[in-house]
Design a protein around this nucleic acid. Structure first.
Lengths: 169, 169
DNA sequence: TGACATTATTTTGAACACAAACTAATAAAT
DNA sequence: ATTTATTAGTTTGTGTTCAAAATAATGTCA
């Protein structure tokens, strides 16, 4: 009965739920680093590096939806742990090419999942319709939010006939 | 067609979507602090303080699903900006009572929404069924994740008869 | 060639978020 | 009454994340 507290269906409820979810994910990440030595973002980045073999920070940043500055920090820690090597590209000396070490491959082989195993299990056991409902809900949110970041572009042109876009934003 | 990339429906896709969503929310928070002076977490906490009038750090931590240490940091910044005051409780001198200042009420009155206005608008305009689908999907995820955080406790008591808990863990 | 712009990465500074260790005060137990 | 445990809050250390400024290399245009 408590779930009707805040006018129930608003975007505030969405935010509250999302914050709980992300907290849970963050807690798992922090437990990973103890049991396994790497946090989730580190693991995500390392996976991506391993999948591509030889990449630049910018490519990784784009692939995992993080800023370049963030990638730099993660690279630093991965390098310190001997999981990647960095060297300047010779044909464009602005670029830094990153490569996974042998350690990295070994490490990834025994890597735990990025979310609590019990969650993964539980999620996989859901009915197909529920899994797709959840996933499509999330992707709906992604598209609703992406809209503003990209925002300027396509739709607004059409809608602007009705809603004249007040500079602002 | 690209959406089938990663074995498609797994919890990895869920995580990827969630990370994009939270990034978007974080970016908004960072833009808030420039236009308005407070970040989302600060605003969330301040709202909660204002709603309760006189509260302790622990109560707020529980109400907004953050650790006490995090609340301490946020209180510090809110205090520095003159939005709350802290003083020891006289009947239990461990407690620190927090109160919103007059500034705070003024501030909250003109506070922007916690998510991009364009998102809020777009979300409110969705069909009712879609809003509830999204919200209930999120709450489903919350409950699936909560399960593990809670679960540890009750079992151990029973199991400890068989497994004498080796310090470790 | 020299001035300017663009691109790739790093550095800096701020905030958030946690656990673990710590301080201080209260409560319980011997 | 003294020890011990619990509770409330802070401090410390690590990691994530971003924007903005700083480096550095490449490209462009005059």
């Amino acid at each position: 009965m408590e779930s009707l507290k805040n006018s129930g269906n608003g975007s505030d409820s969405v935010l509250a739920a999302l914050r709980k979810i992300m907290r849970s994910i963050d807690l798992h990440s922090k437990s990973l680093v103890k049991r396994f030595g790497l946090t989730s973002p580190q693991l995500i980045v390392l996976r991506e590096v391993d999948a591509h073999g030889q990449v630049t920070a910018g490519e990784i940043a784009h692939a995992v939806s993080l800023s370049q500055a963030t990638i730099t920090g993660i690279f630093e820690r991965l390098e310190k742990r001997g999981l990647i090597t960095r060297k300047r590209s010779s044909d464009d000396r602005r670029r830094i090419l990153v490569q996974p070490t042998l350690e990295a491959t070994k490490c990834l082989a025994g890597a735990p999942p990025l979310m609590q195993e019990s969650f993964v299990d539980a999620f996989e056991k859901l009915q197909d319709w529920e899994k797709s409902m959840i996933l499509s809900s999330l992707q709906r949110l992604v598209s609703l939010m992406d809209a503003q970041n990209i925002d300027a572009a396509p739709f607004l042109a059409a809608e602007s006939l009705e809603t004249p876009i007040n500079g602002e934003n």
